[in-house]
Nucleic acid binder design. Structure first.
Length: 477
RNA sequence: CGAUGCGUGGCUCAGCUUGGUAGAGCGCUGCGUUCGGGACGCAGAGGUCGCAGGUUCGAAUCCUGUCGCAUCGACCA
């Protein structure tokens, strides 16, 4: 890997990680700010990533029996207020519509911050019999939360996401669906985004407003901070009781449904940037890279060069996403541009190459260059993209492993968070006072109680009472 | 919601202290030469200085208010 910094406009991540992130987002032309605080334009380069991600996740949903629907973006205030914990959780950050044209509305409408209440209102009329169950619906939409502090992709006031909402006849089936969807998210992050995650359950303090149990996947960013990357909630029958969603079971008894909801958002794009990016800009896993091969002609005005570039595109575009940069910028400029935008492979082709019947391929992730004969190009590109995808995951896994620590005493725990950044595994007694104390003292929160439990000590790291769970702790986005 | 910073061509900023013809670099347009890690020459276009009041013969500059954005904290995908 070259030490020389090729792109001067991007702040080095070791100097200021937050600024690096903002620079990459801007320079890779993923988003633009707008005149509404916290609302962003997702530009073609950014939206293309979302489309690829969305398509592949949606395929996995469909295989799991999920059907897509679309519900309105407005929620009448009375509807939002039916479930007590839920309102309290969301009230501080909802946006309200108070007028239609010039006329004040009889009842104000909230712009959905999430759609549990709408799905419940719909399900109560839609579900009558056990034969109507389960309902496994999902919608791709945007939601609005009036955040005070905003950052592109990580926390915006409006963001794109999917929200799945299911209704089941039994508690067990709901729990199974909750875990099934969490597993789909985790596999998707690993296999498509090359991001390893920790699967686990949130503590009561951190769980979703109105849920019986919230499960989460937690990823570790390059700076050692955690990013909650997806959640899956089991609601039990709490919403069903608040909204009166009943069905006639086989025994002809009226029963309440058991519900779940689960979601991931454009925040995942922020995760991709902060897990894989480097000082030259974006590094995208091939499976979500809008441009997998960027062909850069050298001396493109020379006879035959551009023709060759287009011919190579013709061969490659059957199986890969390919772009020819035939703008009249200099090659060096194009190299830097392709790197900033995260094109997985750069293909250089010039008069010398054409004469020799080969071209140059350069990997974005390692900068490794290889010369490839034209006849081998197609297979070599496929191999290289597979290799990049695999090695990006391996590097991310190694990073997470080397930034995951264990503490059995408060002293160790404090020292780790003072000196290092990453996950710390430590035991917990199960009481919220200890979580609060840790948060106040170190600005660290419980990320999750992982499914894969280990006994790293017998007593709570904070209070010393007998431990109930091993918890991943960290500073989070 | 608290703290801090910033609003001047598309972008980054200078000019403001001490009021007097609106500036630079980059980008953009045209032509030409270049091209294996952000090339260069020449010619051009482009701004009621965030907004509203006030002071003044005269305000980007001083005063008051207001709006917006960014960053960091407290709360959250």
């Amino acid at each position: 890997m070259a030490d020389k910094k090729m792109v001067e406009e991007i702040t080095s991540m070791d100097v200021d990680f937050a600024q690096w992130y903002t620079d990459v987002v801007k320079k890779a032309e993923l988003v633009d700010y707008t005149s509404v605080k916290g609302c962003m334009v997702i530009k073609p380069a950014g939206y293309a990533i979302w489309e690829l991600l969305q398509r592949q996740l949606d395929e996995r949903f469909k295989k799991a029996g999920v059907e897509n629907v679309y519900l309105p973006m407005f929620i009448p205030e009375s509807l939002l207020q039916k479930e007590k914990d839920h309102v309290e959780g969301f009230a501080p950050e909802v946006a309200w519509v108070t007028h239609g044209g010039m006329q004040p509305l009889q009842e104000r409408l909230c712009v959905r911050p999430t759609s549990e209440t709408l799905f419940c209102d719909f399900y109560k009329n839609d579900i009558h019999s056990y034969r109507d169950l389960p309902r496994v619906y999902n919608q791709w939409c945007s939601v609005v939360r009036w955040e005070k502090e905003t950052r592109p992709f990580l926390r915006s006031r409006e963001f794109l996401w999917q929200e799945g909402h299911t209704a089941h006849a039994t508690a067990q089936e709901a729990e199974e669906r909750t875990i099934q969807m969490l597993n789909i998210y985790a596999d998707f992050c690993r296999e498509v985004l090359a991001i390893p995650v920790i699967k686990g359950r949130k503590t009561d303090k951190e769980k979703f407003a109105g849920a019986v149990a919230t499960y989460t996947i937690e990823a570790l960013m390059h700076d050692g901070k955690a990013l909650q990357s997806g959640t899956s909630h089991n609601f039990g029958d709490g919403f069903a009781k608040a909204f009166g969603i009943q069905f006639a079971d086989k025994d002809n008894g009226q029963k309440y449904v058991h519900q779940t909801s689960w979601g991931v958002s454009t925040r995942l794009i922020g995760g991709i940037i902060m897990v894989h990016g480097d000082n030259e800009g974006l590094v995208l896993p091939p499976r979500v890279a809008p441009v997998q091969v960027c062909i850069i002609p050298i001396q493109q005005k020379k006879e035959g060069v551009l023709d060759k570039a287009y011919a190579l595109r013709g061969i490659l575009e059957k199986n890969f996403r390919v772009k020819v940069d035939d703008s009249d910028k200099s090659p060096g400029w194009k190299f830097a541009e392709a790197e900033m935008r995260g094109a997985c492979l750069r293909l250089e082709v010039g008069p010398k190459d054409i004469e020799a019947g080969k071209c140059v391929l350069c990997r974005r992730d390692t900068r490794e260059k290889v010369e490839v004969a034209f006849e081998e190009l197609e297979s070599r590109v496929g191999e290289l993209l597979d290799t990049i995808q695999r090695e990006m995951l391996q590097r991310a896994e190694a990073h997470m492993a080397s930034h995951t620590y264990t503490a059995s005493t408060m002293e160790e725990f404090e020292n780790l968070f003072r000196e290092k950044s990453g996950f710390v595994k430590a035991m917990w007694c199960g009481c919220q006072e200890c979580e609060d104390k840790i948060k106040e003292k170190l600005a660290v929160t419980s990320r999750c109680m992982p499914f894969e439990q280990e006994n790293v000590a017998d007593t709570c790291v904070c209070c010393g009472k007998p431990a109930k769970k091993m918890v991943y702790w960290g500073r989070s986005y």
